[in-house]
Amino acid sequence: MQCGWSLLGPLQWLRYINREVKVRAGNDEEHRGWLLTVDPVSASVVLVNFRKGGASVQVVMGHAVEEVEVLKEADDETAERLRTTFLPQRTLSLDP
């Protein structure tokens, strides 16, 4: 069943970034975490929960998303942690 989430589009999905959200999905699953991104191709939601020395990542497939509820916004520190979660350890510079 295709729900509204898949049809929202990139500009709407962008508004959910860096928000703590609760995602209801098929199978009566419920996931909570910081929304890192939404894949614009599959509408899949990437949630991050920070832990000591790392993070637990949950990806809910777009086709299974039933409802996304915003709980709160990230502060600057959390937003920065989210931004750097999947960046490579060392960014190669092309400048000489």
């Binding site: 049809l7 589009g9 890192l36 991104t37 894949d39």
Partner: peptide
């Protein structure tokens, strides 16, 4: 979703798509 919308809107949507997709691919 913005078919029929003006070019500026389309560009904004494409920029948003790029940001979202890059982050997903890194994941």
């Amino acid at each position: 979703a913005a078919s029929g919308a003006d070019a500026e809107e389309l560009q904004k949507e494409q920029d948003a798509r790029t940001v979202l997709r890059e982050s997903f691919l890194r994941c």
